[in-house]
Amino acid sequence: MQRILEVKDLSINFYLREGVVHALTDVNFEVFENETLGVIGESGSGKSVTVQSILGILSQPPAKIVSGSIRFEPESRNLELNLLPTYGDTYRNVRWNDISMIFQEPMSSFSPLHSIGDQISEALTLHRPELSETDVLSVCLGLLEKVGIPSPAMFFKRYPHEFSGGMRQRAMIAMALVCNPKILIADEPTTALDVTIEAQILELLESIKSEFNMSMIYISHDLAVIGEISDRILVMYLGRVVESGVADEVIDNPLHPYTRALLKSIPKIDQPIESLDPIEGSIPSPFEVHTGCPFYSRCTERLGEICLRQKPAHKTYNNGHKVSCHLHA
């Protein structure tokens, strides 16, 4: 399998009036062709910042890439995205054309003043100027039908607020597919939706992914969802990748105490609810600077002084399972 995206030692800071937030610290991962990479972490773990930095849609300032690189198609075109000017032609052509994104809030991610059709077709007319108006329309209507919208032609002319959250998210998925991208990023696409709709959307995403031959980066704070949809999993905590590996391996044999804690906190149908173990404490203040392991304050398996004082190194096992914890030094 070929790598389509490579993120190396990526560190991003946010320079705010209240202080500096180290949003990402030495983040490393790659995405292969046709695979689904699941990214999991609590809110504030840096999942969204990671994918937004790939698309170059972080507001800079306050965000700033301090070090590291983001390479798109490192084997062939080898575009170093982090070095491209944000609104330059090269980067703009990567956006939506090669990498597109489904956002968390289908309501606010659409402009309320423009028709859904206008917003869906916009990227297509932008990136494929050679297409005629009727071609654009037929592509869009076809996609709307594919994502399960009953009468696409009518839908096309209407406005976002006239539809339910589920419908809007379907429209968003159709919009993300117009340019047939190589990578589809889904940033918690079901968080704002009902549970019943969530299952439908997940199913839709899986079928579309295989039909369109894309890679997908799926972000969620729900390990159950991630385990189901991903080929490989990335576990993030406080802007760091603490564990990564093939999905089954990470779920069945979690190495990091944080991953274990996450797994314990998933409710299971055959267990009484009392057996759930929530992770104690809450995420430390984002302004805090950690000399040792960032999970130290909440870790139930911490070793002592070494965890507080020294940053854990990354350890890679033969099967590609990586972990960053003093327990596995």
Binding site: E280, S285, T300
Partner: peptide, 10 residues
């Protein structure tokens, strides 16, 4: 659950 102290954030 083990003891939980708030030593890192004063």
């Amino acid at each position: 659950m083990g003891s939980f102290s708030n030593s890192s954030s004063v």
